[in-house]
Nucleic acid binder design. Structure first.
Length: 515
RNA sequence: GGCUCGUUGGUCAAAAGGUUAAGACACCGCCCUUUCACGGCGGUAAUGCGGGUUCAAUUCCCGCACGAGUCACCA
């Protein structure tokens, strides 16, 4: 299979662009085919400098590698140029051929003319568009045309449609299935007045010449599909197979709508980079939306690379999925939990360098220290899942850095100030950072019993009135004093990494603050 | 408004005429646990509505409702 993506260089890559891109890439590479990049720069007004670079970076960061097509330095491949503006002569050659065959004609209507016609059509409640009696330039004589061109009148080239809105055509879309669509009867513009083709004409010429076998695109193109099929026929070419996929939706109030570039920050690919969603996790999330079998596969193959999953376009959903960032987060958390501490370190480093420079300083000051922190609870069969995005890391480990440590010191309301102070005070006396995990915990247990807490949670539950609390409550006091919060990874490991001096200092501080 | 596509729990979805209508996320509960997590077990919760075909309909057909897309010299 030969597939492609053909974005416009607007400088903005939409999250939704990833769906056809991943589908195309998988289809091509799983079949041993070619996946290429074409730049649809036919609309000069929307073009942004450097956009090709943005596009390339965006897609390759998701592991979507192009075999051919536009690159930052030019073109790579034998079917170029891969930028449509550079293909002007090619389009014109084919356009001339159509004119010669009477399948296309110049149209001199101005924008104003068209607007008037549109208004009339609206008033008459008939279909919109340039067709039938509305196609004023359709039957101009050669002399008339020659004269208008000689006068320097601006014109566009229109397709002479032979279709009728009375007829239906049948078409099999690889995703949507059997479709019954009304034939196109509108004389669409092929070449704009600047001589640059519209999407429709460029699509037909390029995908034929570049040998695309499967076109994957959003289903907003479904309505112009009859035109495209008609054009392929008029050119005498075989049309590619089409896969029209539904847009990503987002709920708004009681209804849902297309994920919008203007309204939704998460529509931009840059949003995920900024929040620190690992691109592989985003890739996995999209795979779960694209191919329902993926989640099942991931559960039975937890250690495999997502690209080993046998993607099947036949399993693609016909209707549009609702974007669920909570699910994305879950996928991301699972993904991160499978990484090694070193991998996490590198990823966080890259993220922080760009988006949180002050944290970057602290984080990279002592690599071993940071990696040790990230190692807590990692590996093994049941790794912790503390965070799913890199932007959570600074607050996750802030208590390891005095510079950003900002404890809340809010203890359980059921414990009196005196009890808390007693815990803190006696712990300073018994803490020894040479203890191993068991000895360390035994000390806390002994201390708990000495202070009137239960050393055994079960016993406490049997008669809670006989104790102040249980050993868990004691641990929580220590955790709050040292970490400044109720949620932290394994305390023994945390204390070890912080070191005795720091632990004692924190506990003393906490004690002072109770006075 | 015309045309097109779609509609299974809150979300993603499986089930292609016969199932107690999977599973995952979220939520709730219990268990495990020195804490927080992780994990384990369980729970709440669905075929838009109305007709038809059939012994049998989530599945096929028709109508309605709702949603989405499109109707540019934008892609």
């Amino acid at each position: 299979m030969v597939t492609r993506i053909a974005p416009s260089p607007t400088g903005f890559v939409h999250f939704g662009n990833l769906f056809p891109a991943i589908t195309s890439e998988r289809m091509a590479h799983q079949s041993g085919g070619i996946f290429y990049l074409r730049i649809e720069d036919t609309d000069a007004k929307r073009e942004v400098p450097g956009a090709v670079d943005i596009i390339l970076k965006a897609f390759t960061s998701f592991g979507l590698n192009f075999d051919e097509g536009a690159t930052v330095d030019g073109d790579n491949g034998y079917y170029g140029p891969y930028r449509q503006r550079q293909r002007e002569k090619i389009y014109k050659t084919y356009a001339k051929e159509l004119v010669k065959q009477g399948k296309a004609y110049p149209c001199f209507c101005t924008e104003e003319d068209l607007a008037i016609a549109h208004a009339k059509q609206e008033a008459l409640k008939c279909n919109f568009g340039y067709f039938g009696q509305w196609a004023k330039c359709r039957d101009k004589s050669f002399e008339e045309i020659k004269q208008l061109i000689d006068e320097g009148k601006s014109y566009v080239l229109r397709f002479r449609s032979e279709g009728s809105s009375e007829n239906k055509i049948k078409h099999r879309d690889l995703v949507k299935g059997e479709l019954e669509i009304t034939e196109n009867d509108i004389d669409h513009v092929l070449l704009k007045s600047d001589g640059i083709p519209t999407y429709h004409f460029a699509h037909v010429v390029d995908d034929h010449l570049m040998g695309t076998t499967h076109v994957v695109r959003g289903d907003e193109w479904l309505s112009t599909l009859p035109l495209h099929l008609q054009l392929f026929r008029a050119m005498g070419w075989k049309a590619p197979k089409y896969l029209h996929i539904s847009p990503l939706m987002k709920s708004e109030g009681d209804s849902k709508r297309k994920l919008s570039k203007r309204k939704d920050p998460e529509a931009a690919l840059t949003f995920y980079a900024k929040e620190g969603y690992p691109s592989d996790a985003v890739y996995e999330y999209i795979l779960t939306l694209l191919n329902s079998g993926y989640e099942q596969w991931r559960m039975t193959n937890p250690d495999k690379d997502a690209r080993e999953y046998p993607f099947q376009y036949k399993k693609m959903s016909v209707s549009g999925a609702l974007f669920d960032i909570v699910k994305l987060y879950d996928v991301s958390k699972n993904y991160v939990s499978r990484l090694t501490a070193d991998e996490v370190y590198e990823a966080v480093k890259d993220w922080a360098k760009e988006y949180n420079p002050s944290f970057y300083e602290l984080f990279t000051k002592d690599k071993k220290f940071s990696v040790d922190i990230l190692s807590i609870g990692r590996g093994g069969k049941k790794p912790r899942k503390d965070f799913g995005v890199w932007s959570e890391v600074p607050s996750y480990m802030d208590f390891f850095f005095d510079e950003i440590f900002n404890p809340t010191l809010e203890y359980d309301e059921n414990l009196s100030k005196e009890n808390i102070k007693a815990v803190l005070k006696s712990y300073i006396e018994v803490y020894d950072d040479n203890d191993d995990n068991n000895a360390w915990f035994e000390k806390i247990r002994e201390m708990s019993e000495k202070l009137g807490f239960s050393g055994d949670v079960k016993k406490y539950k049997e008669s809670p009135e006989s104790y102040i609390g249980h050993v868990g409550d004691v641990s929580m006091v220590l955790r709050i004093a040292v970490c400044g919060r109720t949620n932290s990874p394994d305390m023994y490991a945390v204390f070890k990494i912080l070191g005795k001096d720091k632990v004692i200092e924190r506990i003393k501080d906490a004690y002072e603050k109770l006075n």
